[in-house]
Design a protein around this nucleic acid. Structure first.
Lengths: 337, 337
DNA sequence: AAGAATAATGTAAACGTTTACATTGTTCAA
DNA sequence: TTGAACAATGTAAACGTTTACATTATTCTT
């Protein structure tokens, strides 16, 4: 309820001076600063961020758009973002796109209207990044893309080396003696999953392993019966039975694990399995799941830092792309012996 | 960039009329409405929510405080909240308390300054709800508590019947023939875990089952070696071996599952196990985990609706508490034969 | 046809800050 | 002792809306 005016009244100072105190301006003497602070305590003064934002043009809010909050990958990224944002006294406002371009656009619209200072964005599979950039640019709102990156130059991005991650995973299976490794692919409309597939194929080629575009790439259709038949056929193939599986994510790895169990194929004895993402449950399942760590929280922190840097610097910072390197996590599901 | 003024200029109308159009006031004629909308399209007019909030006192923002975003329970609640909030044209701003009272207070402070219209709050174990209520009340910000509820009258709450959930879980184990059921308790400083314990004890008493405060209640200390020894001792007790385990959460149930596996106790043959929360991975582990569904998304929707109702009604709505009922989900980990 | 009722629009102040510019007070060099 | 330099404070307009109140235009009643 109490505003800067009230403080001015009881201290006998002008609005400007009071305002300067709260903005930590060096233009105010120690003595008056203390007087003001004491008065503001007494009145339980709460600065009105809306008014401040309106006048100054800085809202101290960062907008985040992600596909799905309940995806643990994204929620831990947000953890990282929140930490850095809070340190810098920014609030975060979150919107989910649910992989829908329309919702994404709506979110951006709402962010523009809310006058967010910057946007962190992991776009949907259908998004044309250029449009988004243009839109935000025309309102002078900087944006940093994370996780889902694109080919455009001159944009700020924090990515992850999906290619290398997939390569490491596949290589690991090869090292464990697998002769016929299949890959459960994700949505190939998305760059990240294309990259994972590429990494997988590269590893096989580098090591001269068996690869067949028809049979080595498996699309799940989330119909348990059909899927388990497919897997069964592959694993029981008389000529070239599958003995290694690289799944595009931990969750689908779990799903596969279930299927294998049902058709009585032992992991890791008969088939070795590795996931992707190092989700919190991956060390808690039986057998413990080998996987690729995506360094989620780090990604969050990095993107937040990049955005904050842009927000804090007067002059233009030349855009840059940073790519995080994967870490291979070896647990039980992929180990021979 | 374009504001209401620009629209006024090119249409020759007054600011008031333009404003009325965007606020869907009935006081404006169809003809002028269309003229205004056309002009606003042309200018790509974006209402400045900050200015609007400042003048009207309504920010159209809901603040959410939760302990931990990466806890899937909370992220699905937020999913529910976001859905309802978006429908009503509200943005959500999220802060995590990380179970720290200080961070929680800081978040509330920041919400007050951001002039959120209302707060949805799941408080930390150390929180004294009364203080929070008082603080928000003095700034006229309504609050709805969810999940973690308290005893105070005259507050808005959406809770979950933890007692009944625990009762159902325990009862189910009894029905499956368990004679000696232990309970892995959560943090007993928290009401929800106290209630779960109570429900467990009640079920045992109602059915005249074995219960011993000393041995039936197990606190995990997250030291795998020590914990596995404890569990082993209980399960191999010559007089009264444990044959049923009710864990306070799905994650700890998974943890227990691992321990049991390691000490070669079969689930569900030797010991039947049930968790709490119906987390997304619970149907993907081996054996599939029986659990109690907490109806997370529903809880989110309900709390959002309750808050929105308060925000939309002129007159005071008398505070109410709603308690969601648990659903028993029976899967493999608890089934006999 | 006059006045009442209603509909549509306009005027201008207000929301609580920030900030460019102006003013006053102080210190210090010459 | 003047005035230049600097430090501290003040004045008042501005940010982009909303809204109480005033005004004008239109329709209706009798």
């Amino acid at each position: 309820m109490a505003g800067i005016k009230d403080i001015a009244k009881i201290t006998g100072l002008s609005l400007a001076t009071i305002s300067r105190v709260f903005n930590e301006s060096p233009l105010v003497s120690k003595k008056t600063r203390e007087i003001v602070l004491k008065a503001s305590k007494k009145l339980d003064y709460q600065p009105n961020l809306m008014a401040s934002a309106l006048r100054s043009g800085k809202s101290k809010i960062i907008g985040i758009i992600i596909p799905e909050l309940s995806n643990p990958f994204f929620s831990s990224i947000i953890n990282g973002i929140e930490q850095k944002a809070n340190e810098a006294n920014y609030s975060i406002i979150i919107a989910q796109s649910h992989e829908s371009k329309e919702k994404e656009i709506k979110a951006i619209q709402s962010f523009i209207q809310s006058k967010v200072d910057g946007v962190l964005l992991s776009f949907t599979e259908q998004t044309i990044a250029l449009n988004i950039i243009k839109r935000l640019n025309s309102y002078n709102i900087p944006v940093v893309f994370f996780d889902r990156t694109h080919q455009l130059k001159n944009t700020n991005q924090i990515g992850f080396d999906n290619y290398k991650g997939a390569f490491l995973a596949t290589e690991h299976l090869i090292n464990q003696g697998c002769k016929n490794i299949i890959h459960i692919v994700g949505n190939l409309k998305m760059e990240i999953h294309k990259e994972r597939k590429k990494g997988y194929v590269s590893a096989l080629q580098d090591y001269g392993s068996f690869y067949n575009e028809e049979t080595s790439i498996v699309h799940l259709n989330m119909n348990e019966l059909a899927d388990s038949k497919t897997i069964q056929n592959l694993c029981n193939d008389s000529e070239n039975p599958t003995d290694g599986i690289f799944a595009h994510g931990d969750e689908s790895a779990l799903y596969i694990l279930n299927i294998l169990k049902k058709i009585q194929i032992d992991v890791p004895k008969d088939v070795k399995l590795i996931g992707f993402g190092n989700t919190n449950f991956s060390s808690l399942v039986q057998p413990k799941l080998s996987t690729i760590d995506q360094r989620n929280s780090e990604m969050g922190k990095l993107s937040a830092c990049m955005l904050l840097e842009i927000l804090n610097s007067e002059k233009l910072i030349s855009p840059k792309t940073e790519i995080l390197s994967p870490k291979l996590i070896i647990r039980e599901s992929s180990l021979s012996q």
